[in-house]
């Protein structure tokens, strides 16, 4: 066999392998949508997405409560994880001495590798109980508990991606700024962080994707009740705009109530649902919502990252 032929063979083998990965993804998507499509022959898409009642026995398939709870838990997680994660990344990339950096990196990577059910167990035993006792609630299984656990889970992603993007800011920018008599803090705030911002943002978006898709930890601590607060239901009704303020006022209250995430609903109801039935199909439709959310997030994150490389060069 001559060299040219061998090269060609290697090329085609690699091509087949790389195509396989994309093909698998494509098949999963087709399968997911195919299973979900039956629901939409009975229920309109808008009724499904914005319906507030979920009761398969009565044929009610409103997915909005799950979407709502998933988003609330994720937002809560972001509020906790962004300040913590970004400041931790700044410290590690800019301030910490070399040995501290070397010590923390494997720890953070390990944190990212812990199975999510372990986070869930920790949350169930420590956080849920802490919330119940300290806030004197009937149950500690609340959106707040979910947010705290999700925050802990997305923290490693936000830290490591933010740290990478801060460290990839060219050293010459920093030196240029310091040489003009800027303090370290000014240099950080005006040069390093703005330059690293697209990367930090991409890390946060990846964190959101992880939080939205997280199942095992959330199902243990969220309480799994699809009853939405009345205000949210009204918000979707006719007198929508007037209740926005009411909703904002009730945010703390919502945080202290149980909820049920998209992922939890699929996990908990797939067992009882009859294969091929409408309920079964509705659960796949929930999966479609989840898939679309994470798909958009990952595309957005890639787009932001690719643009940032152009501007920094």
């Amino acid at each position: 066999m001559n060299h040219q032929k061998r090269e060609d063979l290697v090329k085609s083998v690699l091509f087949v392998f790389s195509i396989t990965a994309s093909l698998i993804l494509l098949l999963i998507i087709i399968f997911l949508f195919n299973e979900a499509i039956r629901l939409f022959q009975e229920v309109s898409f808008l009724d499904f997405l914005f319906g507030t009642k979920w009761n398969p026995e009565q044929g009610l398939y409103g997915a909005f409560p799950f979407v709502f709870f998933s988003i609330m838990a994720t937002l809560g997680a972001l509020i906790i994880a962004i300040p913590l994660g970004v400041s931790c990344a700044v410290f590690l990339a800019e301030i910490a001495p070399g040995w501290a950096r070397d010590a923390t990196r494997p720890v953070i990577e390990l944190l990212a590798g812990i199975p999510s059910i372990i986070y869930g167990l920790f949350g169930l035993v420590i956080i849920v109980r802490f919330i119940k006792v300290s806030l004197e609630l009937a149950t500690g299984e609340t959106i707040l508990a979910g947010s705290i656990i999700l925050a802990a889970m997305i923290l490693p992603i936000i830290i490591s991606i933010s740290q990478d993007s801060i460290e990839s800011v060219p050293k010459s920018f920093k030196l240029g700024s310091l040489a003009m008599g800027a303090t370290n803090w000014q240099t950080l705030r005006k040069i390093i962080l703005p330059t690293a911002l697209p990367g930090i943002f991409a890390g946060i978006i990846l964190g959101v994707g992880r939080a939205m898709g997280e199942t095992m930890a959330v199902v243990l601590v969220l309480g799994n009740s699809e009853n939405m607060p009345e205000v949210v239901k009204q918000l979707l009704g006719k007198e929508g705009s007037s209740t926005v303020m009411q909703l904002i006022n009730q945010v703390p209250e919502i945080l202290f109530k149980p909820g049920e995430a998209l992922t939890s609903a699929i996990l908990l109801e797939m067992g009882p649902a009859q294969v091929g039935g409408l309920h079964y199909s509705a659960l796949f439709a929930l999966g479609v919502i989840l898939f679309c959310i994470t798909f958009v997030l990952s595309v957005a994150s890639n787009y932001i990252l690719s643009r940032s490389q152009i501007s920094v060069r």
């Binding site: 010459s172 920018f173 040489a179 800027a182 920094v312």
Partner: peptide, 27 residues
């Protein structure tokens, strides 16, 4: 910091900040 304000430096490789021309000089 005050010392470096009195002694400016120009580096080997041009290192303008990733911002506008105006903002670079105004920095």
């Amino acid at each position: 910091v005050a010392l470096r304000k009195r002694i400016g430096q120009v580096f080997q490789k041009p290192n303008p900040f990733p911002m506008s021309i105006y903002d670079n000089v105004a920095y």
